Amino acid sequence: MLELAFPWVLVALPLPLLVLWLAPPRREVVEAIRFPFFEGASAGLDKGEGAVVPARSSPRMAFVWALWALVLLTLARPQWVGEPVERTETARDVMLAVDISGSMRTRDFIGADGIRGSRLDGVKAVLDGFIADRRDDRVGLIVFGDAPYTLVPFTRDTAAARTLLATLEPGMAGQNTMLGDAIGLAIRSFEASKVESRILILLSDGSDTGSRMAPKSAAEIASQNGVVIHTIAVGDPEASGDDDKVDIATLQAIASATGGDFNRAEDAVGLAAIYARIDAAGARQGATTSWRPRTPLSAFPAAAFAALVILARAAMLLTARARRPGEGTS
């Protein structure tokens, strides 16, 4: 849609008419030759005071008027206004902390297709859909094993987050499970967040193996910083190895300390349902802002003005040269 930023400028369009009406014709003094017999030679002619008023031809007046209109149009700043563009502000920040210790390669997780696969592959498949569904949220991803690492800082670029998620393999960060340190890293990630709703989804299949910060202490600090932690247990609590046995009590305590929920996921369907409940419980509508992109078009009438002036000047030069036929001949 075409609009004018300053349409009131066009009020000056009839200004030349007022000038013609109110201002007297321009007079100028020029040299002249006196003829003694002028009275006889000028019989029948109207004689004035000697003023010469150039004739105003219609094409010339139309040309001047067109130049004036182009000047006003340029000053009015025409612009093309596009379709409305809406942007939804971030409603909440969601950090996903995923255990990628060696035990996550255990093939006891039933996928959505009913086929048994590794725990991490099943988690990745469900997480991929969860991240893709983020509309008004920023999402981040922390992975942990022997130490926690920020794989994806808070972003709205869900495509990049899903691409990096697909690269995860069990044991990439070591064989241990540093639950407390992962929570500590998430708290630091939330420090720069200006969003009130801060959610950490902590997913693990083992027990803490020597974090510098105890998981329960880290959860208390998270609660003081407004971070709600939802914990999800993937491993088998009856497993024989201590490193492979999920610490249900610790995960429950972490969730309870921050007002979050504890859940157990044994297959893809159950894990997807857990994510859906967490998403619905913390759902919040982000503020929406709308604007229309504007493309300035003032250059077009300005260019037309310059082109007309150049053409008029060229026409004047050609006309003057045509009136001097002997010029340029030998």
Rank of each mutant, 00 (worst) to 15 (best):
P54T: 03
F130Y: 11
D146W: 04
A62G: 07
I33S: 10
G111F: 03
D247W: 05
T250I: 02
A233H: 01
W68H: 06
L120F: 00
P293D: 01
A91N: 13
E3N: 12
A307M: 10
S193R: 06
L96S: 07
P16A: 05
G122N: 05
V9K: 13
P237N: 13
F305S: 09
A55G: 11
G286V: 06
A159S: 13
D136G: 02
G260V: 12
D208R: 12
R323H: 12
V143L: 00
T250F: 00
P36V: 11
A255K: 07
V81T: 15
L318Q: 12
E266I: 03
T74A: 15
D157A: 05
K194E: 15
R138Y: 01
L2E: 13
G122Q: 10
S57Y: 01
A299D: 12
D205W: 02
S290W: 00
N176V: 10
L165K: 00
E49Y: 10
L251A: 08
P170A: 08
L73N: 04
L22N: 10
E49T: 13
V269L: 14
A307L: 06
A166T: 14
W65S: 13
R324N: 13
R162D: 02
R107W: 07
G259E: 04
E49L: 15
V152K: 09
A97N: 05
L164F: 03
T90H: 07
P16T: 07
F262N: 03
L13E: 06
G102R: 12
L127Y: 08
L308V: 03
A315R: 11
